[in-house]
């Protein structure tokens, strides 16, 4: 594995958190229970502080479900990161999840989005404006 730029790997209840060139990256793999979601949020916020990260990338491409609880956690995560001068970009949302969140009225206004981690990384590292306006 090419470890260049990798600053650290951490495991939050089985979910690895990787920090690369100032970006804290987490790929949520399974359906997490509420407790694990809150735990993950704690770990992410601490990791941002510890690394002085510029951004957080949350990859949810493996998730079939994002309910209002998880949505709220992602929203508050973004808020906390912003206070620490870091951007939060949500990537890889599945069409079915996007349609469900919209139906729920959860449009995650304060959270940036990108198609994948690669594009999100590019936005953070090169300090580019958000992909899309918040609706």
């Amino acid at each position: 594995m090419d470890t260049e730029g990798v600053e650290g790997v951490l495991h939050a209840g089985g979910t690895p958190i990787v920090t690369i060139t100032g970006c804290v990256i987490v790929a949520i793999r399974d359906d997490l229970d509420d407790q694990s979601v809150m735990h993950l949020q704690d770990e992410l916020v601490e990791e941002v502080a510890r690394r002085g990260a510029r951004g957080v990338i949350i990859d949810i491409s493996a998730l079939e479900i994002v309910d209002t609880f998880a949505g709220r956690m992602i929203g508050s995560m973004a808020q906390m990161a912003r206070m620490m001068n870091a951007r939060t970009i949500l990537v890889g949302m599945r069409p079915a999840v996007a349609m469900t969140l919209v139906e729920l009225g959860m449009t995650l206004v304060g959270v940036e989005t990108a198609l994948n981690a690669d594009k999100a990384m590019n936005l953070i590292v090169n300090d580019l404006p958000p992909v899309a306006l918040a609706q």
């Binding site: 479900i65 994002v66 309910d67 209002t68 599945r94 069409p95 079915a96 469900t100 139906e103």
Partner: peptide
């Protein structure tokens, strides 16, 4: 279908919680 699945399971999650 995947959309029906996601919608239903999300609804179940809300109600169960």
């Amino acid at each position: 279908s995947s959309i029906k699945k996601t919608k239903f399971v999300t609804a179940v999650s809300e109600i169960a919680r």
